[in-house]
Structure formats: structure tokens, C-alpha cells
């Protein structure tokens, strides 16, 4: 197997080609913030938190979708990147109605954690307060669009891992919404297998099981990749 050398934040790393910058950084304990990345499903580069600076390329590229190349010089920790991560986080909070104190995911929410990591003490942008629906028609689960950040992890896990493709996305701009089938109530879905993978894939309190109350949600996003890896082993 060929080995290439790359430099991240001034540190030389030996790695294999064909890996993404994100994979290499995570394997070497270099923190890269992500929201839409979920190990086990395809990366879409949508949250723009994992943007890195690469020498010789005048654009910021998303670490989750960019493959490493020999002698790449990468920076993940510049002031510019930190500033942009903070703005992105603030926009996430301002976009929909994230009320941590009454959320099932309070304390275990990836978005909350992100806010702490980027040092967001307040949101400088006006809140948009959109009208969002809550769909509790499913027998076991609820989807609350107020808390959705459009990472589309549920969409991908449903399509790629479960193969049901119950979830998809409709509309454009800030009107985008995750929809069940052709925008019918989740409980009436003909494709949903009620497998619950989307519940674990969701980074916030947007999808949760009905049996859970405020702050009690335990999500295990890691099981998605575990499943994918075990399937490869054909156990």
C-alpha cells in the first residue's frame, strides 16, 4: 500500500491516498467540527463547518468530501476558519426555533455541543422564528421541524442504509423541509419501516421516540457505521 505525507497545522502525517481530509484528521486526533457528516453514509459537504484551508487552493474546501493528496498542506485552525465556524453555528440557531430548555435532546445535542465548542455565548443575528410543523402521526416517533438543521443525515441513512427512502427534501432556501414520502404524514408513510435509524442519525432533538421526555434522549449515531461495517463482514 502506498503511503503519502501531508501536513496538517504544521504537523507531518503519513497516510494512505483515497482517504478524505476528515478521516485523516480524525484518525490523528485533530478536531474538525462537523454536523452533516455521519460515518457510514455518503458525505454531502452541506454544513460547511469542516472547511479547511489548503495551500495553493484559493477556495476553502470541505474536509469531508476532499481527498488527501501527496504533500498537501492543510490548516484547520486559522482565525478565519474559527470565525466562519462561529457564524455558521449562529446561523443554525437563528434559522429555526431551537429552545434548548424544553428540548428532548437538551444536554445531549450535537448542535448544543457545537455552540459550546465554537464559544457561542449569544447569537448576533435576528431569529427568523419560522412556522414549523411537528409531525407526531407515527406510532413511535416524532419529527419536529423546529429543531431540524437540514443536515439530511436522516435522509441519507434511510436511503443508503435502510434502503427505504422514506425521507427526502422539499422546497428551496429557508423553506426547505425534510418530508416523509411525498410530504404526507409520517404515520401514513408506505415506505417507512419504522427501523428508527433516522432517530439515531439525527444530531438534534428533531427526531425522537415518543417515550422520551425533556433532556432524556440518548442517541447512538455510531450504530449506523457499526451496522454498515458489520454488513460488509456478512456476518
Amino acid at each position: 500500500m502506498t503511503t503519502i505525507t501531508i501536513q496538517v497545522n504544521g504537523k507531518q502525517l503519513a497516510t494512505e491516498p483515497d482517504k478524505t481530509i476528515l478521516e485523516v484528521c480524525r484518525a490523528n486526533d485533530i478536531e474538525i467540527l462537523t454536523m452533516c457528516h455521519l460515518k457510514g453514509v455518503m458525505d454531502v459537504g452541506a454544513c460547511r463547518l469542516c472547511l479547511v484551508e489548503i495551500e495553493g487552493i484559493n477556495k476553502l474546501l470541505s474536509a469531508c468530501t476532499t481527498k488527501v493528496a501527496a504533500n498537501m498542506v492543510i490548516r484547520t485552525d486559522t482565525e478565519r476558519i474559527k470565525k466562519y465556524q462561529r457564524i455558521t453555528t449562529e446561523l443554525f440557531f437563528a434559522e429555526r426555533n431551537h429552545v434548548c430548555s424544553v428540548c428532548v435532546a437538551n444536554g445531549k445535542c450535537e448542535l448544543q455541543q457545537l455552540g459550546y465548542k465554537v464559544g457561542m455565548d449569544h447569537i448576533r443575528y435576528p431569529f427568523l422564528y419560522p412556522k414549523c410543523e411537528l409531525d407526531s402521526s407515527h406510532a413511535w416517533y416524532v419529527i419536529d421541524h423546529n429543531r431540524c438543521i437540514m443536515c439530511t443525515r436522516c435522509v441519507r441513512v434511510c436511503n443508503e442504509v435502510e434502503g427505504a427512502h422514506n425521507w427526502d427534501v422539499m422546497n428551496r432556501g429557508t423553506q426547505v423541509r425534510v418530508i416523509s414520502d411525498f410530504n404526507s404524514p409520517w404515520g401514513e408513510s408506505v415506505t417507512c419501516t419504522s427501523c428508527g435509524k433516522c432517530v439515531h442519525a439525527c444530531p438534534t432533538g428533531a427526531i425522537w421516540p415518543k417515550a422520551i421526555v425533556q433532556g432524556q434522549l440518548e442517541k447512538k449515531p455510531g450504530i449506523i457505521n457499526e451496522l454498515v461495517e458489520k454488513r460488509k463482514m456478512k456476518l
Binding site: E95, L128, T174
Partner: peptide
């Protein structure tokens, strides 16, 4: 803002702001 596809955060929310 109207034509943003809504996939990435900067364009979706940034243009609205």
C-alpha cells in the same frame, strides 16, 4: 435567497439574513 437550493447553511440562511 429565493433561488438558494437550501443545501448548505451559508447560502440558505446567509442570503436570508
Amino acid at each position: 435567497m429565493d433561488e438558494s437550493c437550501g443545501k448548505c447553511v451559508p447560502c440558505r440562511v446567509g442570503t436570508k439574513m
